[in-house]
Simulated assay, not measured.
Amino acid sequence: MSGSLLGNLTDLDATGALAVTLPDGRAGFLVRVHGRLHGYENRCPHRDTRLDVAPDTFLATGGELIQCAHHGALFLPESGECVAGPCQYESLAPLALAVDGEGGIHLARE
């Protein structure tokens, strides 16, 4: 893998999500929905704040959508597009990810 190690797939088992710190110090997060891994910068486009207030909690009840804990905006995990809330039609900033043979999650490029 060419990028920095962010975590392991097993780190997402408990909540389906994981807060990470990117190599440049920015906050990021990973989510697994329907077995697919997605990663985004942990920054809501509405108020430029983190999405989470509780550790590793990024998914709305039901685990289908990403939710901002501050104002309830909902985002599609596949694209990061806001589909409900004050930032509708804006998107989260995606992270390019790669998974190695042992389940390590890496940035695909830095």
Rank of each mutant, 00 (worst) to 15 (best):
A19G: 13
V83T: 11
D24K: 00
N8T: 11
D48Q: 15
G85S: 10
A19V: 01
L95I: 12
P55F: 04
C68F: 07
L22I: 06
D24H: 03
V53T: 08
E41H: 14
L76M: 02
D100I: 00
L12W: 06
T57N: 08
V31A: 00
G103M: 11
V99A: 01
T10M: 07
G72Y: 10
A19M: 02
V53R: 12
G85M: 11
P45T: 14
F29Y: 12
R109I: 11
T61N: 14
L51G: 10
C68T: 07
S4L: 08
L37H: 03
T49K: 07
Y40E: 10
F75P: 02
G103F: 08
A69M: 07
G104Y: 05
G25I: 05
A108G: 14
S79E: 06
V83C: 03
V99R: 01
G16Y: 01
L95G: 11
F58T: 00
S91H: 13
G35A: 06
V31W: 02
A73K: 09
A54P: 01
L18W: 04
L9S: 08
P45V: 14
N8I: 02
L97P: 03
Y40H: 11
L107G: 08
L76S: 05
L97D: 07
I105C: 02
T21I: 15
T49A: 10
L22V: 01
M1H: 13
D13V: 09
L6A: 03
F58C: 08
A84F: 15
L9P: 05
A96D: 13
E102S: 14
R50T: 15
L22A: 05
G85D: 11
P77D: 01
H71C: 08
A19L: 06
E110Y: 06
G16H: 03
R47P: 02
L6I: 00
G104S: 10
A14W: 04
G28Q: 06
L22F: 06
E81W: 09
A73I: 12
D48A: 14
A98P: 01
L97R: 04
R32D: 00
Y89D: 15
C44G: 09
P55N: 05
C44D: 11
S91I: 06
A69S: 15
H46I: 09
G80C: 02
S4K: 12
G63I: 02
D56W: 08
T49D: 03
C68W: 09
D48G: 07
L59D: 00
V20W: 01
L92R: 07
G3P: 07
H34Q: 14
C82E: 05
L37N: 03
H38S: 11
P23E: 07
H46R: 05
F75S: 00
A108L: 12
E78H: 02
E78G: 03
L65V: 00
H71M: 03
L95A: 10
D11G: 02
R47F: 12
L65A: 08
A73Y: 10
R109E: 15
V83Q: 02
A108W: 01
